[in-house]
Simulated scan of single mutants.
Amino acid sequence: MSAVAAAGQSIAVRVARKTVEAEGVAGFRLVSADGARLPGFAPGAHIDVALPGGLVRQYSLCNLPAQDGHYEIGVLRDAASRGGSLAMHDAVHEGSVLSISPPRNHFPLHEDAVHSLLLAGGIGVTPLLSMAQRLAALGAGFALHCCSRTAARAPYRRRLEASSFADKVFFHHDDGPPAQRLDLASTIGHPAPGRRIYVCGPQGFLEAVRAAARELQWPDAQVHFEYFSGTLPAAGEQGEFEVELRSSGRVVRVPASLSVVDALAAEGIDIPVSCAQGVCGTCLTRVLEGEIEHRDLYLTPEEQAANDQFLPCCSRTRSPRLVLDL
């Protein structure tokens, strides 16, 4: 059973349109399969999509939130993927019916900002495209910088160039002239009250932006980010350990070959899980005792340092046992 179906909140949608949005990028317009109204969403939201073969993947919604008659997602064809992007490109066509979750948002837009700087790496533009459309509709101050390897690989370039806010959009390509490449320090600038940064893209791009923002003394609270893939940071040796469920005192052994989620599931203890990569936050669990080895891309450094919650789909422990609030 897919994570979408297991959560008991699945929505049947039909692919009304499949488009080419850049080299290697497919766009999908999803409409309700039964004509019912789709749930609303805010910029930055994503949906879980149950794919052929039992895979479940997360994709950001990239259309204007007011367009509640449909959802739009963009998917990069990644030859190194574990099957999700290939399934979307090769097995999902116009007319295909898919099961999705209601929208969830771990990357919300602060609409009261004086100015929003949107920085996209490749397909990471998808949630920022929704944000840009919303900010333009509000008449708010913003700029969107889109970085890609080549002009042909810049997702949604044609749409952005034809938009009403095209003068606020800037493209940067690795194969372009040096003057066109993104200068992070000058683009980010110095922090000021009411200014916010939103960044989405691959891990290297995101970490470069965050490092530049810290160097310029931006407060973490004004820098918002979302990874678009589950490329997890390297971890140390992962041996066997135990988890204890505080409510019952039950102790479950977690071998080196299994995640905490999988070890608990093998004992009939289910934790809601979606991406299984430490990205979406669905399985976030409170920790009462023990030292956590965080391997997620969801919690902020400050939240990880608090040592009171973790994502059992990927994180482990540096102590012999973790006591969980379960």
Rank of each mutant, 00 (worst) to 15 (best):
L61V: 15
A42W: 00
L51R: 01
A79N: 01
T126L: 12
G124E: 10
S96L: 08
P108E: 05
G124K: 00
C62M: 15
C62R: 13
R159N: 10
R157M: 07
A79Y: 00
A87V: 07
L55C: 03
A80E: 12
A66C: 12
H172M: 05
Y71K: 03
G121I: 02
V92L: 06
A42T: 15
V114W: 01
P39K: 03
H110M: 05
L98H: 01
H70S: 14
P39Y: 06
Y59D: 14
I123V: 15
L109G: 06
P102N: 10
H70M: 13
A42L: 11
L98Y: 01
G40H: 09
F165L: 03
L118G: 03
D167L: 04
V75K: 05
P155A: 11
G40K: 01
A166H: 10
P65T: 12
P108H: 06
A113D: 14
V49R: 04
R57T: 03
C147G: 04
P155K: 07
G139E: 07
A162F: 03
G69I: 11
A151D: 12
I123S: 13
S85N: 07
E72H: 10
A140S: 13
A80T: 10
S163Q: 03
L64V: 04
D78C: 08
L51A: 10
F41M: 08
G69N: 09
H110R: 15
K168Q: 15
G121Q: 12
S81T: 03
G139I: 08
G122F: 04
A91M: 09
F170L: 10
V56L: 05
A143W: 00
A154L: 14
L117I: 09
V125M: 11
F165S: 05
A113N: 06
S81P: 08
P65K: 13
F142M: 12
E94G: 04
G83C: 00
A162L: 13
A154W: 01
A87H: 02
V92Y: 02
G121P: 09
H106T: 12
L119P: 06
A140C: 00
S60I: 08
D90V: 00
L64Q: 15
H46M: 09
F107Y: 15
P108C: 05
H93W: 03
L129E: 03
C62Y: 09
S85K: 02
P102E: 14
P43H: 12
T150S: 14
A140F: 04
I100Y: 07
E161Q: 15
L51W: 02
L160D: 11
L138Q: 14
A166I: 00
S130M: 03
V56K: 01
T150Q: 05
C62F: 11
L117K: 04
H172S: 14
R134E: 15
G69F: 12
A137Q: 10
A120S: 10
S81D: 14
A113E: 10
Q133P: 00
A136Q: 02
A80K: 11
L109I: 09
L61E: 13
E111P: 06
G44K: 01
A113K: 01
S130P: 06
L160V: 07
G95L: 11
R149W: 04
G121V: 04
R149E: 11
A132Y: 01
V114L: 13
L144G: 04
P43N: 13
P52L: 11
S60Y: 06
A50G: 01
A66K: 14
C62V: 11
V49F: 03
H115F: 09
